[in-house]
Every structure is written in structure tokens, then in C-alpha cells.
Simulated assay, not measured.
Amino acid sequence: MNIEQFVAQSEGKWRSMRSGHSLAFQQFEEVLSEVNIERVEQTDQQIQSLLDSSSLDSSASIASPFRMSWAAESDWEPDDPNEVSSGACLIVPVPSNESTGRLLRSVGYAEAAPAESEYSFLSDGTFILQTQYEQSIAEERIWFVSDHVRCRSSVLRTSAGSGILQTSFASEVRRLNS
């Protein structure tokens, strides 16, 4: 698996069911989401802006940039459990070789700020993403069970890496047009 294959296989609309365990608050959270993943043209001006604001050379070779948007309902919303949170981010892969590279995100997974991550693929095609944020370290894993089903897990650690703050697991099913 390489980044181009991974993005191509990820494109589309997904229904996600995620279970999270916050060790810090000793609570479970169930989240239902609609996730949309679509490619972005490499000439999109936002890509260059993201590259310019990163630590990478602005002429770095990118591959398969995409936009991910989501709308999620959580049973852990303190004010209104039916409240829908939504968002979107631009994601720009910058491969180092066939199986590793950097990933630029306009909004991070664990903290709502631009993020730079390291990615790699295991021999079985599992995508691993590691991100060092200001307050935490996130490790995400995504793997495909079939063409239309994928799984995602994450572990969020303290910034020193010594304590686990949160874990989650999601199963995601692609929405097929009839």
C-alpha cells in the first residue's frame, strides 16, 4: 500500500461508529458520524498556503491531497446530546518514499490547530499516523477490512508520552449509491 492507493481507497462517503474511552475522565463516548473524503486538485491555493506555513520546503513533492469533512453526534455532549459537531480539514500527503512520509493537516485530530504528522504503512497495508501536538501525542491506525469497510483506532497520550489520555475504535462503512 502507498499513499496514493490509500487515498483512492478512502474516497467517498462513510458512516462511522466510534467508541471512545477517556481515561482522564473515566467515561465512555459513543459517536456516530458521516465522513466525506474527496480529492483536491494539487493546484488548489490552500495547499500552497498549508505548505508555506509548514516546516517543509514549499516546493516539496505532494501526492493525492484531499479534504475530509464530518458531522458527528455524540452521547457525551454536556449541554445537548443531540447537538451535531462538524468540521473539515485539508490533508496534504508529502511522501518520502513508497511507504513513509509526512502529512500536513489544516486542522489536527487531537487539537484544533494545523498539524504535521509522520505516516507509514505496515506490510499488511495498515496506515499509521503519529502526531506530536503541543499538549499531546496521537497515534492513529486505519486498515481496510474490505473495499467498503474500514477500521480506525487511536491512542492519545500526554505530551511526554508517559500517560494514556484517551483511546478509541471506529468501524466505518462506505455509503454506496444505489
Rank of each mutant, 00 (worst) to 15 (best):
L122F: 05
W14M: 03
R15L: 14
D80L: 06
R175K: 13
D79H: 09
G87V: 08
F169Y: 14
N82R: 13
T158A: 09
V149T: 12
D44V: 09
V94R: 04
E116K: 02
A115K: 02
R102W: 05
I142K: 04
G108H: 05
I47A: 01
A112R: 12
C89R: 15
F6W: 03
R18E: 13
S178L: 14
A72K: 12
D147T: 10
A170P: 00
V145M: 07
L51E: 02
T126C: 03
S85T: 15
G108N: 02
E38T: 13
L176V: 08
M68D: 02
V145W: 06
A112K: 05
L103V: 01
S168T: 11
S49T: 13
N2P: 00
L156M: 08
I137T: 02
T100Q: 02
E73I: 15
L32N: 09
H21F: 15
S74F: 13
Q42K: 15
R150W: 05
Q26R: 14
R150D: 01
A113K: 11
A110T: 04
F169N: 12
I3F: 00
S19Q: 15
S153D: 08
M17Q: 15
P65H: 09
I164N: 07
L165E: 07
S61N: 13
E118A: 01
E98R: 12
S49Y: 12
W76F: 13
S19C: 13
A8W: 01
V155T: 10
G163P: 01
R102F: 06
F6I: 03
D52W: 11
D147Q: 13
Q48H: 13
E98Y: 09
S136W: 03
I91S: 03
A8K: 11
W143N: 02
R39L: 08
L165K: 04
T126Y: 02
R150A: 03
R157N: 07
A170G: 05
C151W: 08
T131S: 02
I62Y: 04
R150F: 02
S69M: 08
E73F: 11
V84L: 10
L23M: 12
L90W: 10
D80E: 07
A115Y: 03
G20I: 10
T167Q: 08
R157C: 05
F25L: 15
A170R: 05
E38V: 13
L122D: 04
T100S: 01
M1K: 05
A112N: 04
S22Y: 10
S153Y: 08
N36W: 11
R102P: 00
A138I: 06
S171T: 15
S19P: 01
E139A: 09
N2T: 03
G12Y: 06
E116V: 05
Q42T: 11
I164V: 12
W14S: 03
